[in-house]
């Protein structure tokens, strides 16, 4: 019970930090710390709008699923050294939560029966086909190095050296995939301004809050997972493990935002080419290199 509350709290906290930092960088407004909370309150007080002839059931399912999946993905991150859900396939679990988001986001785009929302939903799937395989290979590379799909074991395997040292390509692909599945930053085309907000275009009130908050929590959770898989999780001197994990997570969040907001949205058809011709081979070579290191006994 306590651990579930912790996951909830950490998730909301990381999501709020991500949203606030993002807002601050976007608008060059350093006083925007309270903006996410204010926005959440505003959305709670706003009417939940419907559209003409929506598929209400699927729409609601899609909106509600986004935050649920976000917290679900955080459940396998060992925040206090152990995670809420410690399974033998944590990494695949994280991956699954993010793939379930495909369905959720598409439903959120499909439900309102509107052109821009549906286009956003399609874009999300198209983009998903681009980033998904590199992301999967990146995640599995960390598991390969640790010889386990359990997140705690992956952290334990990084006792001497962080995985990012031997897996830089996987680390980069993971962060790129995180931007992709949270349709944020350079991969935010599914919610792009060119389609009036895409999957978000018809959302108001608590529905919009659900999707926006879920997306922020997912980004925070992805940063925490990146810190867990590649930056040694809770390993570090002097401070307790939880503190180290949070510090690393915050650094990842900062790096993601600084890098992601420096560039415009990458159009999906451009990204698709790069993903299949560059990223997939690159992550495969990365996995091969790590496999060779494993055989050579490098990871002990």
């Amino acid at each position: 019970m306590g651990e579930a509350a912790l996951v909830l709290l950490v998730g909301l906290g990381l999501g709020a930090v991500f949203a606030a930092t993002d807002h601050a960088v976007l608008t060059a407004d350093a006083h925007g710390i309270g903006v996410p909370i204010r926005r959440a309150t505003r959305l709670l007080l706003t009417q939940r709008r419907t559209t003409l002839a929506p598929d209400r059931l699927l729409w609601r399912i899609g909106c509600v699923a986004v935050p649920l999946l976000a917290f679900g993905s955080l459940a396998v991150v060992p925040i206090t050294g152990s995670s809420l859900l410690s399974t033998t396939a944590d990494l695949v679990w994280f991956n699954t939560m993010e793939v379930l988001l495909w369905g959720a986001v598409w439903l959120a785009g499909w439900g309102p029966n509107a052109v821009h929302a549906l286009t956003g939903g399609y874009r999300f799937l198209a983009q998903g086909l681009a980033y998904e395989l590199p992301l999967m290979f990146a995640i599995i590379t960390a598991g390969l190095g640790a010889g386990s799909l359990n997140a705690e074991s992956v952290v334990a395997a990084q006792d001497g050296m962080w995985f990012v040292v031997t897996m830089p390509v996987a680390f980069a692909a993971f962060l790129l995939g995180a931007a992709g599945f949270a349709f944020w930053g350079p991969l935010s085309a599914p919610a792009g301004a060119d389609i009036a907000g895409g999957v978000m275009s018809e959302l108001s009130g608590v529905d919009r809050l659900s999707v926006e908050a879920g997306r922020a929590v997912f980004l925070g959770s992805a940063a925490a997972m990146a810190a867990t898989l590649f930056l040694g999780g809770g390993h570090g001197p002097w401070l307790p493990g939880t503190a180290w994990l949070l510090i690393k997570t915050l650094l990842v969040i900062g790096a993601m935002i600084l890098a992601g907001r420096r560039m415009p949205v990458v159009r999906p058809e451009r990204f698709m080419d790069v993903a299949w011709i560059v990223l997939i081979p690159a992550t495969l070579v990365q996995a091969l290199a790590v496999a060779l290191l494993v055989i050579s006994g490098y990871y002990g």
Binding site: A89, V92, V99, G103, Y122, L125, L129
Partner: peptide, 23 residues
């Protein structure tokens, strides 16, 4: 565990794509 998670993963991707084909 692994099979369960992989089933969910693969089938979600399949169904998401299938939905597009259906439509």
């Amino acid at each position: 565990t692994y099979l369960a998670v992989v089933t969910a993963l693969m089938m979600t991707m399949e169904m998401a794509i299938m939905g597009v084909f259906m439509v």
